[in-house]
Structures are given as structure tokens and as C-alpha cells.
């Protein structure tokens, strides 16, 4: 291969560069630009409206699943009165954050990527620039802040739904009373676990939101490129959220902050 040969950047290199540039742009415009309060509030409402049903459905399935596992095996060993504890611990400690962020990346993250990608393809972003509207301030910051705030709310909502559904099914299959279920449910929850879950939700909300928006700016020349950008948004965000979950879990464990040691 001659020295003059230029190797075109691969799709993943392009995606990486797009994400790095947009992360830098985000912090630059967050400091330099005027904070877009109105757009952020509008985005926040949209994210909540578009995401709650997906999270609700996921939480129902999650509640039934955990209840069934805990109830079935609890019954086998004669300890099903602890189902409330097991379910709450599992959902609160890990599953609510994990499930919510996966669903968030799938439902809201990909929607961000597709929306901005199609705006790019139809020259709407160029139109913004011509109207002297900074796309980073108008499009990026509101979506990222909305994600960061919405994910912890979704996690709280998911937790509530999953626990409630667990109890309903528990009462139906094993005739467990409301008092026994909820009396045991919160016996092992401590403030450290709350901090841990909140920290993970905030961090993952921010990272997945920013990655998804960034990939909307992936160079798109047609439907195929937009499809690639959307797939990358999902894949990168899934890996990101698993890594963040692991990293915060490990740090919390070493600090004994609501994590199993």
C-alpha cells in the first residue's frame, strides 16, 4: 500500500468521532450559550409522555417475573412470606434501573437519533443555522437534560409499579396479605441503596441521552445511514449503560453504599 493511500474512516470510527465531538459541543454550549429553559421543559414533557407507557409495561412484566421466581422458590422452601423482601430488594437494588434504562435507550434514545438524523437529512439543521439558532442549544442540551431528569423518575415509577404488581399476583397465587408483603418488603432497604440507584439513573440518563442525540449528527446521506446511526445508538447505549451500572455498582460496593459486597 502506497503512503498516499487514504483509508476512509470506518463506520465505527465515524460514530466515535461524532460522539466525542458532540460531548465536547455539549459542555461548550452548556457553559457558553444561554440555557434553553423553554425547550428543555418541552422536551421533558415529551420524554415523559412518550416513555411512560413503555416503562409501565416493562415494570408490570418485571414485577410478575420477580414475584414468580421468588414466590415459586420461596414456596418450595417454605419461605414465601419473604417474597416482598426479595422482590423489593431485587427491583430496587438493580432491576428497576437496568430495565428502565434499557427501555429508555430503546424507546427514547433511538427516537432522538432518528429525529435529529432525519432533521439533518431534510436540511432542517441547516435551516436552524441560517436562522441563527444554534443546534446545540436548541436540540442537544434540552434533550440531554430532559433524559437526565426523566430516567430517575421512570426508575421510581417502575419500582412502584413492579412492587404493586408483585403484591397483586402474590395475593392471587399465594394468598399473601398486604401487611405481610409490605412489612417485609422494605426491611432491607437503606438510604445508601437509594443514593446508589439515583446516581446510576442520573448517570445513565445523561450518557444515553447524549450518545443518542450525538448519533443523530452521524453523517447521514440516506435511509441506510440513518438506519446505521440508529442501530449504533442502541448498541452503544446498551454497552454504555451496562458498563456504568457495573462501574457504579463496584464503586458503591467498595464504599459499602447500598451495594452487595
Amino acid at each position: 500500500m502506497s503512503q498516499d493511500t487514504i483509508i476512509p474512516p470506518t463506520e465505527w470510527v465515524l460514530a466515535r468521532n461524532t460522539i466525542i465531538n458532540k460531548w465536547m459541543d455539549f459542555f461548550y454550549w452548556l457553559i457558553k450559550g444561554q440555557f434553553p429553559w423553554r425547550e428543555t421543559w418541552e422536551q421533558f414533557k415529551l420524554v415523559i409522555l412518550n416513555g411512560w407507557m413503555t416503562v409501565f409495561m416493562g415494570s408490570v412484566v418485571q414485577g410478575i417475573f420477580v414475584m414468580w421466581m421468588a414466590g415459586f422458590y420461596g414456596d418450595m422452601f417454605g419461605g414465601y412470606i419473604w417474597v416482598g423482601t426479595v422482590t423489593t430488594f431485587a427491583v430496587f437494588r438493580e432491576l428497576a434501573v437496568l430495565m428502565c434504562t434499557v427501555l429508555f435507550a430503546a424507546r427514547i434514545g433511538t427516537a432522538f437519533t432518528v429525529e435529529i438524523g432525519s432533521m439533518q437529512m431534510s436540511e432542517q439543521i441547516s435551516a436552524l443555522k441560517i436562522m441563527d439558532v444554534e443546534p446545540n442549544t436548541y436540540l442537544v442540551i434540552p434533550r440531554v437534560i430532559a433524559s437526565t431528569l426523566a430516567v430517575p423518575l421512570f426508575v421510581g415509577f417502575s419500582f412502584g409499579v413492579a412492587i404493586f404488581i408483585s403484591w397483586i399476583f402474590m395475593a392471587f397465587f399465594w394468598d399473601l396479605s398486604f401487611e405481610i408483603f409490605f412489612l417485609n418488603a422494605f426491611s432491607f432497604i437503606d438510604p445508601g441503596m437509594l443514593t446508589n440507584s439515583l446516581l446510576r439513573a442520573l448517570t445513565i440518563g445523561f450518557v444515553t441521552g447524549l450518545n443518542a442525540v450525538a448519533l443523530g449528527f452521524y453523517p447521514c446521506n440516506g435511509a441506510e445511514d440513518l438506519g446505521k446511526a440508529t442501530t449504533k445508538s442502541m448498541v452503544i447505549n446498551l454497552f454504555s449503560l451496562l458498563l456504568i451500572d457495573l462501574a457504579i455498582g463496584m464503586v458503591s460496593a467498595s464504599l459499602s453504599m447500598g451495594a452487595p459486597t
Binding site: S122, E123, Q124, S126, A127, M131, D132, V133, Y138
Partner: peptide, 25 residues
């Protein structure tokens, strides 16, 4: 001012809001 090739109107806004967009922003 520029008229883009396909108009580049914002899909989520009505025609009124599209036209008013630069003034509002």
C-alpha cells in the same frame, strides 16, 4: 434568508409556528 430545497419545515410545528419560529426564538 434561504429557501431550502424541500422547504426544511419543522415537522413537529404547525405552519404558523414554523413561520413564527425565528421571531419567537
Amino acid at each position: 434568508g434561504m429557501l431550502m430545497q424541500n422547504g426544511a419545515l419543522f415537522d413537529s410545528l404547525t405552519v404558523f409556528d414554523n413561520i413564527a419560529f425565528p421571531l419567537r426564538y
